[in-house]
Design a protein around this nucleic acid. Structure first.
Lengths: 184, 184
DNA sequence: GAAGTCATGTAAACGGTTACATGATTTT
DNA sequence: AAAATCATGTAACCGTTTACATGACTTC
């Protein structure tokens, strides 16, 4: 039994909440999981086929007018596999952050440029924070479920912390730059 | 001029600090950038060849005894390309966190199991935090450079925050579970 | 003499992004 | 009539991980 791909996991998870078409799955991802788990059409449609071939989901033709449409639903086996994955309490922190890589090498840059990196970084966190706060104050985005809000609170907490960190670093580096200028 | 791959960027950055063999590059990554930017031998060696072919690095045979060894150094063009990338103040937050995905769907799990996810998550952050603190208290890991320490402080700050968040969530969920049990 | 580390690499499989393509329906 | 959105997909490309392979030198 092969391990399910990342895309398979979001797809199964969203279908467990209710049946959807590939298009609707993508819409939902764009509104919810994209902040920590994205997926593109180029993955979703082939994945739905694979999952259907493996018997974890079932597609049913559900055209709207003359427009073709296939709605997928979890099978019993699909639910079993999803719950199996959910139940495994493995967890690996796997961060890939190009901004941090840049910052790591920022000594190679003239003094003010590194400050620019931090400002751009802070702005990016602020932008996401705004989006998350809008979701927070909007209608419950996944009705009757508690954990999406837990994850949302993580997002808000993390990006708030990150904004604060950038802020503090900017101030510290500006202070040190001023001191260095005075000493010279 | 094609965009440099992630692996190319770490490789160029580390070679800018000083010339190294592919093996030494990997050693350094394992001690430093792996916490936010990893790379495997399977990428590093082919990448060094590509970079050499493109004229961004130069390899020189530097055998140790009968053991073959190639030490690579940045060329002028390599340094130019590295600085070009460092100077671009673009920044995209691109998070992929399987743990959060699990948590997002945790309503499908029996009550105590979700708490388990949080505990495992906290433990993972604590483990990394320990490693980072050891690096912090150890000898300056990249001599004479300020920004590696900035990035280290980010790591310590982030994982500390994450441990705190897990802690708080665990308490909140336990409280709610107790209340629910009482009410039934 | 065995185990560990230095050193370099290849091949296969996998996963994901991007761009492209098509056509119907709905809204302005 | 045009633009936006619904809906589905394919193909090419890129990058990463993992497993495998080899051999020399060093340390116990």
């Amino acid at each position: 039994m092969r391990r399910l791909s990342g895309t398979a996991l979001v797809v199964l998870g969203l279908l467990a909440l209710r049946p959807r078409s590939g298009y609707e799955i993508k819409q939902t991802i764009d509104k919810t999981t994209r902040f920590f788990w994205n997926a593109s059409y180029g993955q979703i449609y082939p994945e739905l086929r694979r999952l259907a071939a493996a018997g974890l989901v079932e597609g049913e033709a559900a055209p709207r007018g003359g427009r073709a449409r296939t709605v997928y639903a979890l099978t019993g086996e699909g639910r079993r596999r999803l719950e199996e994955w959910l139940g495994e309490p493995d967890f690996r922190v796997d961060i890939r952050d190009e901004g941090l890589l840049k910052l790591f090498f920022a000594d190679l840059l003239p003094g003010e440029a590194a400050l620019g990196l931090l400002r751009v970084r802070r702005a990016a966190h602020e932008r996401i924070l705004e989006q998350l706060r809008q979701i927070e104050s909007g209608p419950q985005f996944v009705g009757g479920r508690a954990y999406p809000d837990v994850v949302l609170s993580y997002g808000i907490g993390f990006h708030s912390w990150a904004v604060g960190w950038c802020d503090e670093m900017e101030r510290r580096l500006a202070r040190e730059a001023a001191k260095a200028a005075k000493a010279s």
